[in-house]
């Protein structure tokens, strides 16, 4: 909350001769200068540069040629770009699974559970492992005849009949999606646990007296109470799927048809030096993300308003 020292009070001390208003101005300027410079230097300036470059055919060093919208046309006409965009669908399916699992385990762990701290920790810990390490862990995990194959042979599969998990183009993308779920599920789970902890417990007590079972309690009390967070995460998952990068980058390096949009963009920019095309790809995806975020903000706004009204009318009906 801002101060309202409208009367021009004078102060003792080092800055004694200054009015409150001027002092505020100085503090504002001093505190914001460095962060704003950094923000412009590493976020907004590159962003505008990116838009500019997207109209050129260029490398990092050397001559630039103006090509107009050609790079944007290329995104849609090149097969690799389009295939990469299609891969996001895998990740969208994955993120729905991820959020459902997160909800399930959050619901189980908010109940009184023996060892809940251990389970929560075990499910969350994969988030804290660095990308390159995760990459090696799963290269090892999926190698033919190694961990996954051995585990499956314990339950009766014949190792020789198992596919090459990361090379077989029919399944390798699903495997990468699975690793992605493995890595990030815990994050959503912890978030949902936090949200569920703030649900009014008297509602559960009342429901119990009415004879509600666990499912009813979950679907009629828990889920509606944390609806906003769930939907927001679902929308965030869409932009997350569009920009899926880490798992294919560290596990397969984008080989064997696993190159997602950003992996492809990274290859084009830093290996093939097609800087203009890469910038156009980035701008295009960013536009998509901004649209999705716009929808998210709209939903957030609508839900916060509607939710309180609905909530009131429901209560009214019950009484």
């Amino acid at each position: 909350m801002p101060h309202n020292f409208t009367n021009q009070k004078r102060l003792r001390g080092g800055m004694g001769a200054m009015t409150m208003k001027n002092q505020q101005r100085i503090v504002t300027a001093v505190f914001l200068a460095v962060p704003l410079i950094l923000l412009f230097m590493f976020t907004y300036f590159p962003f505008f540069k990116m838009i500019q470059f997207s109209f050129y055919d260029m490398k990092y060093i050397g001559k630039r040629t103006w090509v107009g919208l050609q790079n944007y046309k290329d995104i849609f006409s090149r097969d690799d770009c389009f295939d990469a965009l299609k891969l996001s669908l895998y990740y969208m399916v994955g993120s729905v699974v991820q959020l459902s699992l997160a909800l399930l385990f959050a619901a189980l762990l908010t109940e009184k559970t023996k060892g809940s701290k251990f389970f929560r920790g075990a499910l969350y810990f994969p988030c804290l492992i660095g990308g390159i390490a995760v990459g090696f862990i799963f290269k090892f995990f999926f190698t033919h005849g190694f961990i996954l194959d051995t585990l499956l042979s314990f339950v009766g599969f014949d190792i020789d009949s198992l596919p090459y998990w990361l090379k077989d183009t029919k399944i390798n993308n699903w495997m990468l999606v699975a690793t992605s779920v493995w890595r990030y599920m815990g994050q959503n789970m912890v978030l949902f646990i936090g949200a569920m902890a703030s649900v009014d417990t008297t509602q559960y007590e009342a429901a119990e007296i009415d004879g509600a079972n666990r499912w009813q309690k979950f679907f009629y009390i828990t889920l509606p109470s944390i609806k906003t967070i769930v939907i927001l995460n679902l929308i965030l998952a869409i932009s997350g799927s569009l920009s899926a990068f880490e798992m294919p980058y560290v596990v397969t390096g984008g080989g064997f048809g696993t190159s997602t949009y950003f992996v492809l963009m990274n290859t084009l920019a830093h290996k093939n030096q097609k800087v203009g095309l890469a910038c156009a790809m980035a701008v295009f995806l960013l536009t998509l993300i901004l649209i999705v975020t716009g929808i998210q903000k709209y939903v957030e706004y609508r839900m916060s308003d509607d939710y309180s009204k609905k909530h009131q009318s429901k209560r009214g009906a019950k009484i």
Binding site: F42, T43, S243, F245, H270, L290, T293
Partner: peptide, 26 residues
């Protein structure tokens, strides 16, 4: 405005802007 500047910055995926950040760093 400044508040939104920071919030919007969070939306830009780091990997995307590295293409041009690289030039600035260079």
């Amino acid at each position: 405005f400044i508040r939104s500047l920071f919030m919007i910055a969070a939306l830009i995926p780091g990997i995307a802007s590295q293409v041009t950040v690289y030039q600035i760093m260079y």
